[in-house]
Design a protein around this nucleic acid. Structure first.
Length: 274
DNA sequence: TCCCAGGACTACT
DNA sequence: AGTAGTCCTGGG
């Protein structure tokens, strides 16, 4: 299926750090394992070809119904943000699967992106279903039930380290219904966050990432070390606590704080500024 | 060898 | 309420 898209760049998305299951195939094509299927995206300028996934799912996953240019235009007086928008052109806030996002960001704590990706691949291979695509094997991210039956030592062998117990506990809670992620996602952002924080291994940053990248809560503003640095150095001009930075960001960026966050993050990280 | 990585938990005030 | 110390792991 071919679509003409503005504000879409699969390369930027795949490397943005909000998703972990996209890999480069050629210079302009990427493959991702999403919603239990393999999706191949080939892009030439604004002409984007999708294979493997239906249009409805794609529009949901890539947030294609949102007008990013209109949102960016609201902040045209913000010099830093505009630099970030230009640099990260094509980044969007995706709607990924909730359970996968929860586990992925539990793994992300005090970790780095290459290792996070490696761990998720291993977990999928060990507990997920095999998918064949163009003659290659891929593995879907496991269901809560499948992952809840994992053995701790096995999980540890996926390179997740001390997070093994958090992953297993979270999977069990989702599998037995103690936590219902889709119900939680219907709550307003602050209440939703409160529920997510009940899960061990989920702190403020991870909860915000889960809400932003899988629950459509684009006002969520995850604060990692990079975002802390950029906010303190380029906006607030002094050191602040995480709570104060969050308050400042939500006042400054409003309902679209999460979108601003994602561009700012990509901008500072890729340029290694600050 | 030590240090760090998109934090969170624990154990203290 | 707020804050040091500690934590798997592997790449530099």
């Amino acid at each position: 299926m071919k679509l003409l898209l503005n504000d879409f760049n699969i390369k930027q998305l795949a490397e943005s750090g909000e998703c972990f299951r996209w890999d480069k195939i050629t210079e302009n094509s990427y493959r991702g394992v999403i919603y239990g299927k393999v999706c191949e995206v080939t892009q030439n300028k604004n002409e984007v070809n999708f294979d493997g996934i239906d249009e409805k799912t794609l529009k949901e996953y890539f947030d294609l119904n949102r007008d990013y240019s209109a949102i960016k235009a609201k902040y045209k007086d913000d010099y830093v943000l505009n630099k970030a928008y230009d640099f990260g052109y094509g980044i969007r806030i995706m709607n990924q699967e909730k359970f996968e996002t929860l586990i992925s960001f539990i793994i992300s704590a005090n970790n780095n992106i290459p290792r996070i990706k490696k761990s998720i691949e291993k977990i999928s291979k060990m507990y997920g279903e095999k998918i064949m695509y163009k003659g290659s094997e891929y593995y879907a991210f496991p269901t809560p039930k499948a992952l809840s039956m994992a053995i701790l030592e096995e999980l540890r062998s996926c390179g997740v380290g001390f997070r093994d117990k958090y992953i297993l506990e979270a999977a069990k809670k989702v599998a037995n219904g103690e936590i219902n992620l889709s119900e939680i996602s219907k709550l307003p952002t602050e209440k939703c966050k409160k529920e997510l924080l009940k899960i061990k291994g989920v702190g403020p940053k991870v909860a915000d990432c889960v809400m932003l990248f899988s629950m459509g809560k684009i006002d969520a503003f995850p604060i990692d070390v990079w975002i802390k640095r950029i906010m303190e150095n380029l906006y607030i001009k002094e050191e602040k606590s995480l709570k104060e930075i969050e308050k400042y960001a939500k006042e400054k960026f409003g309902d679209y704080a999460g979108i601003a966050q994602q561009y700012l993050f990509y901008y500072v990280r890729e340029n290694k500024i600050l």
